[in-house]
Nucleic acid binder design. Structure first.
Lengths: 344, 344
DNA sequence: GGAGGGTCTGTAAGCGGTTACAAAGAAAGG
DNA sequence: CCTTTCTTTGTAACCGCTTACAGACCCTCC
């Protein structure tokens, strides 16, 4: 690897001048600048990132905190891949790389005494690596830990979790708006008895979807009896169980809005087991637009999240703060109603 | 952040001694070692990774090269999430973090003139960040670029792509063994006319699956007419098209082994459109065991890959080389036949 | 012609670690 | 008791880059 010193020597200038050419080009005379640039190009010079990070206390790295939930080993993020694509492309565009930090439960973190339950060590890690900021991806039960990150003062952007702190914000879909769209769609197709299967009460997106559901039902002049609101946990089995209980009601709903596609698939299964025809006897609407949604039978009407867009928004937010900007307000990305055969 | 110098001062020893306590503890007398360790713990000292990387030319980072294929924007890795979980947990266990490198097509790489087609810049990036090695995740068309990485001399481990180089190896499933299992299963359930829909010819796992198919058919004493081997591209539409052509044959197969679940789902769709009952009139077996496989109608018999295990194996292989070991031979992880209703 | 003010450049002191080398002290051997 | 050897420690150079500071040079203006 060629160093700044070799270039300086070849060009007959000092190392400071070479460094300036790359960092504050305008302070160097045109002639020297051009010579240095030419030589650097010929030698394919790239600054050593470790040295640069050491000297400037900044590295071109953004940390990614994504812990796999060991209490729910089968749990999968509904759109991790698209999220990463968005994140990565937006970060790349600004010359940043994404560092996936070691997870809790790992020897690496145990060695430094860290776990998501003890975010201090994570924050420490961030400083040691001179990370510019953190992107926090929820794995179902990290919200309390994320709150601690947010308090640390590091630039933090959480995805689908509400956090607050001096330099912390979050990005999520317009969950209440999406839920409202679902309700309006069901009302438009003639339904009056509409139930919902919610996500965990403590989960912000889940709460917002429920709020949106209630608001839109109110606007449509429809009542929401308490037994029409069943709490699930976003996973398929809970959707199936919830649907079973709804079907068993004396006056079962004719339509159900599920706060996740996984639960909606569970609801479809329960309906099938009960011999209910979808969408004729029961309409089902999900949320997420996971790949599966288009492929189940019948294909699922759902609210598509702008998955990559959420990644891009998270990247932008963290970069804004890294570059010294004020913390952006939380972003709520629009969802899109995708009507398929499970509601007609 | 506390530094080594502060600790040295507090303990009344030199910085060299403190450094030794962490790097070569046995060369320091027990008394001093204990004092330093105690003080370090009290001050919650952690070495600065940038400084350490600069001095040792080693960072605790492994690079991840995963480019999203811009020519196939909809393409998704069939098991990225599980792969990352495996990778990350195995790397974490040894104190390494995973650095997702900026992708081609990004400003970051254009700035340094890089793209996957020009791996030199990637390699350069690896050196600048003092990365220990690279894990290469195929996005469908990166094999040529990966070959160049492998030649660079950096420790490289590719997933599902065959590479060779001084310190390059790869990890994949036992593709031929899996395919053979599929054939034996179909033969056992009474099939004689068995066709296959393959992946792209240039793809190593696809080729291996075809080899395994042929070998097992040979062992069973069954012929494989050329029209029973149709090339697909792993994606659903190609599976659907291939199945259509198979159904149109004068003597159509009674069973088909698809080299991916995506294509198998396509085959199911084609069968449904043609009015063929699965599994009675046509048995279908896939490969991968993606989440979808269990949920299509009928649920798909498939060969489950040890997705997280592949990540773990890749991590182990790269760490072996990082720690100076010889390059491990390619790993072929066993697959597991999951029999579902699409073949009975 | 000299003071005042830019512009450009080099010197050198960091950033926070690691480690070669030398020195000091202790232990072992003759 | 002296030499040799081993253990332990400190000094200082170095990793490669950034940047504060000061000096050199050239203009402009009075």
């Amino acid at each position: 690897m060629t160093t700044i010193r070799e270039i300086a020597q070849l060009c007959g200038v000092s190392v400071a001048t070479v460094s300036r050419v790359f960092n504050q080009p305008l302070t160097v005379s045109k002639e020297k600048r051009e010579v240095v640039e030419r030589v650097a190009r010929e030698l394919d010079y790239r600054p050593n990132e470790s040295a640069r990070a050491l000297a400037t206390k900044r590295s071109g790295l953004i940390g990614l905190v994504w812990d796999t939930d060991h209490r729910r080993p089968g749990w999968r993020h509904p759109y991790l891949q698209e999220l990463l694509i968005g994140l990565k492309s937006a970060l790349s565009a600004h010359g940043y790389h994404l560092l996936m930090l070691a997870t809790s439960g790992s020897a690496a973190l145990r060695a430094v005494g860290a776990s998501l339950a003890d975010p201090v060590a994570y924050v420490n890690m961030t400083r040691r690596h001179h990370l510019g900021g953190l992107v926090l991806i929820d794995s179902g039960s990290d919200a309390p830990a994320f709150a601690a990150f947010a308090q640390s003062g590091l630039p933090c952007v959480a995805v689908d979790v509400e956090v607050d702190g001096p330099r912390a914000t979050y990005v999520t879909s317009d969950n209440s708006g999406g839920a409202a769209m679902a309700v309006r769609h069901l009302v438009d197709t003639g339904h009056r008895r509409i139930a919902t299967i919610t996500g965990p009460r403590a989960n912000r997106p889940a709460a917002d979807r429920l709020d949106g559901f209630r608001a839109a039902m109110g606007e449509a002049g429809l009542a929401v009896p308490p037994e029409y609101v069943v709490e699930g946990d976003f996973y398929r089995p809970s959707g199936q169980a919830a649907m079973r209980s709804l079907i068993a009601l004396p006056e079962p709903p004719t339509a159900v809005f599920c706060a996740s596609d996984e639960m909606a698939v569970g609801a479809l299964l329960a309906a099938r087991h009960a011999g209910l025809r979808v969408p004729d006897e029961l309409a089902v609407v999900g949320f997420d637009d996971i790949e599966l949604a288009a492929l189940v039978d019948p294909p699922l009407t759902t609210l598509a999240q702008d998955k990559a867009g959420i990644g891009v928004a998270a990247a932008r937010a963290v970069l804004t703060m890294v570059h010294g900007g004020d913390k952006p307000s939380p972003a709520f990305l629009p969802t899109r109603l995708v009507v398929r055969a499970s509601s007609r």
